[in-house]
Deep mutational scan, measured.
Amino acid sequence: SKDAAQYVYDEAQKGVTQVTVNGVTFKFDNWQKLLKYAQKLLN
């Protein structure tokens, strides 16, 4: 959902490398990768 994507995006902006959405945890090597993933979700 857009809300989940926005949440992931906001978390990535904080510099975190993992985020949990609806009980599913996504882990990334660095926050830039998390940010890229979030941007994909938002598009």
Rank of each mutant, 00 (worst) to 15 (best):
Q13R: 07
V8F: 10
L34P: 00
N43K: 13
G23A: 14
E11H: 08
D29F: 13
L34G: 00
Q13P: 06
K33Q: 06
L41M: 02
D3H: 07
V19A: 05
V8L: 12
N30M: 10
A12S: 08
Q6N: 02
L42N: 00
Y37C: 05
V8M: 03
L42A: 01
K40T: 05
D10Y: 10
L41W: 03
K2A: 09
D29G: 12
N22D: 09
Q32W: 08
V16T: 04
K27C: 15
D10V: 13
K36V: 09
Y7T: 14
E11A: 02
A12R: 04
Q39K: 02
K40F: 04
T25L: 12
F26I: 13
N43A: 06
T17D: 08
K2L: 11
T25S: 13
T17W: 13
V24H: 03
Q18R: 02
Y7E: 14
Q6W: 11
L41S: 00
D3V: 06
V24I: 05
T17H: 06
Q18Y: 06
K36F: 04
F26C: 14
Q13S: 07
K36D: 05
N30T: 14
Y9K: 02
N43H: 03
A4I: 06
Y9E: 14
F26A: 09
F28P: 05
L42H: 01
G15D: 07
V19N: 01
V16K: 04
N43D: 05
V16R: 06
G23M: 07
D29K: 03
W31N: 00
Q13Y: 05
Y7M: 15
K27Y: 14
F28I: 11
G23S: 03
F28K: 04
T25Y: 06
Y9W: 15
T20P: 11
D10G: 11
Q13M: 09
V24T: 02
Q13G: 07
A4C: 15
D10F: 10
L35K: 00
V21S: 06
T20V: 13
V21R: 01
Y37R: 02
L42P: 00
V21A: 14
V8K: 09
W31D: 00
T17K: 02
K2V: 14
Y9F: 13
N30K: 07
Y9D: 14
V16E: 04
K27I: 15
N30D: 11
E11V: 13
V19Q: 13
K27E: 04
F28T: 04
K27F: 14
K36A: 12
G15P: 04
A5E: 09
Y7Q: 15
T25Q: 05
A38N: 00
Q39N: 03
L41K: 00
L41I: 06
K40P: 01
Y37H: 04
D29H: 11
K14H: 09
A4R: 04
G23W: 13
E11N: 08
Q18E: 03
A4Y: 12
Q6G: 10
V16H: 05
D10A: 06
A4V: 01
V24Q: 08
V24Y: 10
S1H: 12
